[in-house]
Structure formats: structure tokens, C-alpha cells
């Protein structure tokens, strides 16, 4: 049901179980991290396909690579910074360079580990993993697309990084929504400005778009759930047809969705852009919704930023 709140980790774990019932190659690897990743039931249901290694994310990344060379499809889920930043070189060489069919899932990503501070925030994962050739990066923005993303990720052959948050999140899509890796979803058409959201703050962009419509501003609203490969055609047509793009992400503005969009637009169809996200500083600690407010990621603040951006042009 639209707007119903659902637990992203639970949805993720259920989808992995669902896929594993028909695909015997799926194995789950844990670095003392399965229970917190929604995979506790997987362990109960498929004890022979669940491997626990304790707190050694770098080692597990290599083990995942080795398993993949034997035709297995390892799913390795843990706290996002520890499966992206900590093990970066293993990710790059063993999963990327060796092009292995491993599915790495960073959970409690973005600022959702709100009060645990900067060691546990993951607001650089897209930036760093995006530099690895051949890795698909998926950042779904609601429970329905999280589930679809899991199945798409398993069906895709090649290394993937998917990120999910932890607080319950609203359903934004009907079950029938078309979900394809590498293809953005146009949630709403418009001509004054394009608003592109991703992941945990997609719902904030959706709410901001409504507020902007109330002010008489026509917004094209796009969900970029696959940050790599990026839906180049969709972004270029938005650039051409609306002339302005605002990106919304729970990530550093350095290297994330905004940067990826700018890399395409600046070379192929330069437009005015505004990137909403976290600047060049360590994010603070505190309750999640308050942190989002501090960094301009609440709907009313996104609305104000967009209005200012349009007026200044």
C-alpha cells in the first residue's frame, strides 16, 4: 500500500530467501553481520548456505571472490562502510578487476546509523565504488524497489554494490512498477526543473516535488535507483527539456549521484545544476530526521533550495 512504512532490511532478507529458493547457487556470507542485515531467517532456512566469518570484512571480500570463481553467487551484507571503504582494495581487485559475480550489500547506509557518528555513516560509498570499472551500483528508494532490486541484482551477472538504510521507509510504488537495472523511473513529468532523487531520501524528493507543485512549479521527478551504469538518455533528455537539474542524495556531494549526473551533462548538454547532499565535512551525530534537516534533506528545505536555485538563474 502506498505510504505504508516497511523495514528495508526485512524486505531485503525476504527477497534474498525468495531468490534462493529457486537459485541454489546463492550463498550468504556474514562478518558478524547477518542478523543485523535481515538475513537471520536465511541462516535458519539454509544453514548449509550461510557462512559466518566473524568481524573480518576484508577477508570475507576475498572469500566471496573465490566462491564466485566456482559458480556460486555470494551475497555479502554488512554495515555499509565496512564493505566499501574498509575493504576497498579487495573490492577493486578481487571483485572488480577479476569481474566476479559477487553481490555486496551495504546496510544502515547513508546517515541512517545516525547517532553512531562518522565511522558508521556511509556517505562516500557511491563515490569510491563508482571508480571501480564494471561494478553496478544500486540504491533503491522504497520497499517495493528494494525487493525488485534484489532479484535484478541476482539475475545480473557481475559484481554489484547495493545500499539500503535501516529506518522504516514509505512505499512509493505500486507492486507492478517496471524496474530495470540502469533505467531510471520518471515518477512525474514536468518542465521547469528536474529533481533527481536516490535511495533513502527519494521519499523526501517526492514530498518536495509535491510542495513545489503547490507553488506552481512544474517538476520532473526522476528516481535514479541505479547510479552505475547511469541512465544517460533519461538524464540528457531531462537536461534538454527542463534546463535545470537538482540532485538529492544522502551522500557527499563529492563523487555521488550529483557528480555522476554532472559528469554526463557537463560534457554532453551543460545545464544549471544544484546538488543537495553533505558537503566537505564529517557529518554530525543525532536523530536521523534531525540530521537530514541539518543537511537540507527534508522536503521543505529541498523546496526552498529549488526555489532559490530557479530564481537565481
Amino acid at each position: 500500500m502506498i505510504n505504508e512504512l516497511k523495514d528495508p532490511r526485512k524486505i531485503f532478507g525476504e527477497a534474498v530467501i525468495e531468490a534462493s529458493e529457486t537459485n541454489p547457487n546463492i550463498v550468504v556470507l556474514s562478518a558478524d553481520s547477518s542478523s543485523g542485515s535481515g538475513l537471520g531467517d536465511f541462516k535458519k532456512k539454509f544453514p548449509d548456505r550461510h557462512f559466518e566469518f566473524g568481524i573480518m570484512e576484508q577477508g570475507v571480500t576475498g572469500i566471496a571472490c573465490g566462491l564466485a570463481t566456482t559458480g556460486k553467487i555470494p551475497v555479502f551484507a554488512a554495515i555499509a562502510p565496512f564493505v566499501t571503504a574498509r575493504n576497498f582494495e579487495m573490492f577493486r581487485n578481487d571483485l572488480g578487476y577479476m569481474n566476479q559475480n559477487v553481490k555486496v550489500v551495504g546496510r544502515c547506509a547513508g546517515l541512517t546509523y545516525d547517532q553512531l557518528g562518522s565511522t558508521h555513516h556511509s556517505i562516500d560509498d557511491v563515490a569510491i565504488i563508482r571508480t571501480i570499472p564494471g561494478v553496478t551500483i544500486i540504491n533503491p528508494g522504497d520497499p517495493v524497489t528494494i525487493k525488485k532490486a534484489v532479484h535484478a541484482m541476482i539475475d545480473h551477472v557481475g559484481p554489484c554494490y547495493m545500499k539500503i538504510g535501516s529506518p522504516k521507509m514509505p512505499v512509493l510504488y505500486e507492486e507492478e512498477v517496471d524496474f530495470n537495472l540502469g533505467k531510471g523511473i520518471v515518477i512525474k513529468d514536468g518542465h521547469d526543473v528536474t529533481l533527481i532523487g536516490t535511495g533513502t531520501v527519494l521519499s523526501k524528493a517526492v514530498a518536495a516535488a509535491k510542495l513545489l507543485e503547490d507553488e506552481g512549479i512544474s517538476v520532473r521527478l526522476i528516481d535514479i535507483h541505479t547510479i552505475k551504469p547511469l541512465d544517460r538518455e533519461l538524464i540528457l533528455s531531462a537536461a534538454r527539456e527542463t534546463g535545470r537539474i537538482v540532485t538529492v542524495e544522502e551522500h557527499f556531494t563529492t563523487g555521488g549521484l550529483g557528480s555522476a549526473v554532472a559528469e554526463i551533462c557537463s560534457q554532453e548538454c551543460p545545464v544549471q545544476m544544484k546538488m543537495i547532499g553533505i558537503g566537505d565535512y564529517y557529518a554530525s551525530n543525532g536523530p536521523y530526521e534531525e540530521l537530514l534537516g541539518k543537511y537540507g534533506l527534508q522536503p521543505d528545505l529541498i523546496k526552498e533550495t529549488v526555489i532559490k536555485f530557479i530564481k537565481n538563474k
Binding site: 553512531l116 562518522s118 565511522t119 551525530n285 543525532g286 540530521l291 541539518k294
Partner: peptide
């Protein structure tokens, strides 16, 4: 919000904390 005692210690926020671990 912005507490000097986050869920993992930060030496820049509080005297006596030697390292930013977590």
C-alpha cells in the same frame, strides 16, 4: 543532535578522548 558524546568517541568533541574509534 550534535551531542559531544556520539555513539562512537570523537577526540575533537570531548577532552580526554584519544582516538576516533568505532
Amino acid at each position: 543532535l550534535d551531542s559531544r558524546i556520539p555513539g562512537h568517541p570523537n577526540m575533537h568533541k570531548l577532552p580526554g578522548v584519544e582516538t576516533n574509534t568505532g
